[in-house]
Design a protein around this nucleic acid. Structure first.
Lengths: 127, 127
DNA sequence: GGTCTATGTCGACCGCCGTCGAAGCAGATG
DNA sequence: CATCTGCTTCGACGGCGGTCGACATAGACC
């Protein structure tokens, strides 16, 4: 099971895969403890340079997905790459799927839009 | 000197305080090491629940600024609040100014727009 | 089955970071 | 000057987390 545990960062009650942020925009009102905990998990996942490069590599790869072997050249050992990809998966930012010999990662739809909306307060365009 | 060191997260060569992101959108191309280092600093600063609450409290406060005493009720000691506000300052997300007895914090203009653009790829509206 | 490649997991090391109490500093006020 | 309040800095503690080498696992292929 490649996807061990995906945290519920998006409100599933919003129907389909629409961007439903976990929290109001930061400028709307002070976040409470629970909202802050949830949102901080997402930002924290992108708060490491290696993870940010891996995420960007997947997000910008043709077809919207990338094999681990395509993105492993970030200057750290292979176990470390695997470790960071797991963190991104657990944060709900990436999903993974094994196809034959290789494992492909892709960006969880609507996560980018949701995070953008928390920051800017603007509903992001449909992905 | 309240502002000990503000990291240059925005490109000052863009004229004025316009939103000039340090990096291309994550979906455009893989970030290089330097870009990832810079962008990760911003996300990391918001990757702590206490810091996120403090930032949100300042960002949503009337007048766009808040005294430390207005936002200190986040469940940690006052030195810890000060520590986190310093981190947010050093990350370039907040500025501070002493006026008489109190110290006021405000959100660095265009930072929210810049981060949003990195995520969504869309130029954010003027704040 | 045996082996080879691609990933993930384990265990250990170590530095970073969030936390606190105590002390220091800056203005205000008397 | 003395003192009080608001905030920052200091020093210490403890745990989280990034990193690696070694090992385990999953398919592919012979």
């Amino acid at each position: 099971m490649p996807n061990t545990k995906v945290l519920p960062l998006l409100d599933p009650a919003a129907g389909g895969s629409a961007a439903a942020p976990c929290c109001p925009p930061l400028t709307e009102r002070p976040l409470d403890a629970g909202e802050a905990e949830t949102a901080a998990r997402m930002f924290k996942a992108l708060g490491d340079p290696v993870r940010l490069r891996l995420f960007s590599a997947v997000a910008s790869h043709e077809g919207g997905e990338a094999c681990v072997c395509d993105i492993s050249d970030v200057g750290v050992s292979q176990p470390t790459v695997s470790h960071h990809l797991k963190k991104l998966r657990e944060a709900g930012l990436l999903t993974s799927e094994r196809r034959g010999t290789w494992v492909y990662y892709r960006v969880e739809p609507s996560v980018l839009a949701a995070m953008g909306q928390i920051l800017t307060g603007r509903p992001a365009a449909a992905a």
